[in-house]
Design a protein around this nucleic acid. Structure first.
Lengths: 205, 205, 205, 205
DNA sequence: TATGAATGAGCGTTCATTCAT
DNA sequence: GATGAATGAACGCTCATTCAT
């Protein structure tokens, strides 16, 4: 009798709301991301939103979480795929995946990075970054980091640098080709990781 | 009767509004940064704001512009001061100045990076970054970059990486001392700039 | 398969809804007396409510009607029981029963008297009062009211005074024991009914 | 230049809002007493309400307080005026004033007594009743209450009885003239106060 | 019958902006 | 200029009611 199980129906509405919300966010910006507008875009009534989300921020949260999840999934997958390869190749491959993930929806990237206020988004971003950082640290160890090197710190430096530069590249592109950027970022990471960062000066005697 | 020429009076009011606005922003956050509140903090009437600023965002713009100006002033001054020094020292000195500039008002830094919506802040940040980037490029050239190296690209990479990591360090501090961070950032920059970015080097064996 | 005839099923549902509604009203107050909440408490769907009641206020009406019916039943029963007794005893006995009836569910009493909006409650209360008034008038006549006395008026005065004071006693208790209150109310009624209402009496001298 | 001092301007708006609010309350009932409707009735914008009142309930509070103040002022004034007179006359005069006060705005009386929910109104009514009760108690003492009589209790009984019956008379008029009602209420009070409420039965020998 | 997802009018409230004084 | 009372569109959200299943 019932064609669709209850759960599926719920998912359907949630999807519709999230999709419309994402569209509104990307098209109109955060200022116009109002519950009424999202409802209208989803073709549902304002009240229906509240059957699926406790409040407006919960909708935003899902949108942002999913977006960040997408990005970090792609990056971590690429990194995991290349763990056996030589450092130079690994670096280039991972940077390439990062750029690709970030290029995929530049509009939403802009909104997430430049428009969204509040701790909520910040925390989601930090969670994503932590996840990537932890994997990166594991990779560093696996690749045989120099003994004594603080891999947590190194991962922190590399991940945040790669992320910031990739975002920067998409949102405010410098006068350079994609290939150049990949090369430079990969080079930045490689040189940093292989370089002796803190030789204490000429070894005593 | 009138002690101050009109222009000076105007400047006075603008200063008062901007100063109060910055205080409100830092104390109460962006959510409470309302024109009425800024006016009250400045001891003027809401209407008076509109004699000096076309709208609310214009006030915010000035506040942010000035803040970023302060930061970039400190960084460029430090960089200029050390132009003659050896690369390692120059890097450390500049990074140290950048961190110092960014530590100076962490509350406002957080608001600017995590709370403010909209393109205005982004544009101001880009202007600031461009300024620093241009000086950095000059420094690179002066320090004798390797022939054939794209100094614009190199400056882009270094400046954005340094900025992002410094901000990250202040807003979401990793488990590391300030000294460590300075070392790592300086090392990141140094290794990148002195490293051979993409030639594979003489094949081993 | 069907164990219960349709009508009985209906009664069952009505009972369930009314009982749950009363519980919600007493537990949560009128502000939270929403159709959804009543439905949930009754373990039925919101839509089902509308199979048995035309709208929300109809549910409330039944709840209030029943509650007032309960109270007036107890009072009229007590009054009827004591019709043969001497006036003083009759008065005290009836007042005592009234207080007892009203004390029985002070929470619902408060809600009915202080929270419920609208004419529906008023009408139900008037119906209850009329019923009691009519019995009281009959009692007055039976007890041999003074000839010429307007028994309808007397019943009106006594019944409303007793009711109002009893409710007042429960909802905003004065500094007095229950016994005192019974005495005072009974005395009020007795003196009023036995008193010569308006002739000034023989001039003092 | 300024024709009206600031305070007067404020008072003007407050008056306008309160008057319109009272009109809306009386005309449309509490259910339709919405801020938007009150604003519209007052010919001001919704926002203006909030310059003078912190929220909706504050408007209602002023309306109700004023109304109750009016009523209690009239009653206490009448009572005070007649303190020297003989009990019968005093009773009749005060009851007459009470009825007059309550007749003055039967529509608002109905709304206040039958429609308004919530503690707010209840508390205001209690405050008014207490005020009258205290004066009544003083009057009782002045008039030479029988020694040993609990004047607080007596005032409680009389005031609440008079109030309830007067309200009842206006809202659900029995089949009686105003004069009759005055007589009956005055008689109720007089007989109660002059009667020996609790003679302990035949004095022991 | 019973369901419960969907509705949508309307709520109380805010605040950037205006303009008569 | 400076004022600040007034504005009003728009917000996030609720809940009595409906109707396709």
């Amino acid at each position: 009798m019932r064609k669709v199980p209850r759960q599926a129906r719920s998912r359907e509405m949630v999807e519709r709301i999230v999709a419309s919300g994402r569209a509104v966010l990307a098209r109109d910006g955060y200022d116009l991301f109002s519950t009424n507008r999202v409802a209208e875009a989803a073709g549902v009534s304002p009240g229906s939103l509240y059957q699926y989300f406790p409040d407006k921020s919960a909708i935003l949260e899902v949108i942002v979480d999913r977006y960040l999840q997408e990005v970090s999934d792609r990056v971590t997958a690429a990194l995991a795929d290349q763990l056996g390869k030589p450092p130079a190749e690994l670096a280039r491959g991972t940077v390439d995946a990062l750029l690709a993930a970030i290029e995929a929806d530049p509009v939403l990237l802009r909104v997430v990075h430049e428009e969204l206020p509040g701790r909520q988004v910040v925390q989601a971003r930090r969670a994503m970054e932590r996840r990537v950082r932890e994997l990166a640290r594991a990779a560093l160890t696996l690749q045989g980091a120099e003994p004594g090197r603080d891999t947590a710190m190194a991962a922190w430096v590399v991940v945040h640098a790669m992320e910031a530069l990739s975002v920067q590249w998409v949102l405010d592109p410098p006068d350079a080709t994609r290939e150049q950027v990949v090369e430079e970022l990969a080079g930045l990471a490689e040189n940093y990781l292989s370089g002796r960062t803190q030789e204490p000066g000429p070894a005593p005697r």
